[in-house]
Amino acid sequence: MKHTISAIVENKPGVLHRVVGLFSRRGYNIDSLAVGTTEKTEVSRITIVVTGDDLVLEQIIKQLYKQIDVLEVFDLPQNESIERELALIKVKANEKTRNEIAQLAETFNARIVDVAEETVIIEVSLEKEKVENLQKLLEKFGIQELVRTGKIAIQKGGKNNG
């Protein structure tokens, strides 16, 4: 089972090292990781996607809480959260394929942000699975380079705990 864990941490040196170290040391697999600032300057949010059963998840959350600089940890419920991943995809393109690529991008609400003689760059921000679908469909044109941010997520509605 994949889980999206959101950890609110103090902006102090070494926090990310401690969190990432914890995962590798205890043998938890990180599928993706995204770190960034929040509405409060003194804290950051680390969003981690992990695979594991309920027992593993419980341990991860408890172990995260044990870190002094970790303030709060949430397991984000998938159906109650907005999840996004940003990808920039550089695809081979020529006169003939450019239109087809543009149409494909449009159906995914993606944008072409750069056009060069032999490539285009597509920017897409969607749920992880949809990003992967688009990526698959673009493969036949030839993907030259791809960069993804890792998932970030936020809980819907009034709750501000993720």
């Binding site: 070494g14 170290g21 040391r25 002094i68």
Partner: peptide
């Protein structure tokens, strides 16, 4: 040393 001792300390400071 804070990097090295990160997995074997309750906490550490530089």
């Amino acid at each position: 040393i804070t990097g090295i001792t990160q997995p074997i300390t309750k906490h550490n400071y530089l």
